[in-house]
């Protein structure tokens, strides 16, 4: 059985992994909160979010606070499942160290 086969390619990136981690423990997180958390630029964050969106792991809600746009992100059922599978795969990789 291939251990690496269970690791999801989408989560190869540290930033995407970070985004998913934040979304798993929070109902929703807005764009700026993610930016502060990961300490990256707007463009960089947007492109990673796009990848996650295209994989249908993340859904986007566009809204407004006053006149300012407020875009929040939350995890989908598929995203949650993929993330959990990825976590288990990571644990197994570490377990095989012994």
């Amino acid at each position: 059985m291939s251990l690496i086969g269970n690791l999801n390619k989408v989560f190869d990136s540290r930033i995407r992994l970070g985004i998913m981690s934040a979304l798993v423990v929070n109902k929703e997180v807005n764009f700026n909160e993610l930016k502060e958390l990961l300490d990256i630029t707007d463009g960089n964050l947007a492109s990673h979010l796009k990848t996650l969106e295209e994989s249908e792991f993340v859904k986007v809600q566009k809204g407004f606070i006053g006149r300012k746009s407020n875009t929040t992100y939350s995890i989908t059922k598929a995203g949650e499942k993929a993330f959990k599978t990825h976590l288990t795969a990571l644990e197994k990789m570490i377990g095989s160290m012994k």
Binding site: I4, F11, R14, L17, G18, M20, S21, A22, V24, V25, N26, V29, E33, E36, L37, L38, L87, L90, E91, M93, I94, S96, M97
Partner: peptide, 24 residues
């Protein structure tokens, strides 16, 4: 690869923690 996995897990843990706190 195993070390990589370990680092990934640590990163996940850290992000989960930090994202649920008010860090400003």
């Amino acid at each position: 690869e195993q070390q990589q996995s370990l680092h990934d897990l640590q990163h996940i843990k850290q992000m989960m923690e930090r994202s649920s706190r008010f860090i400003s």
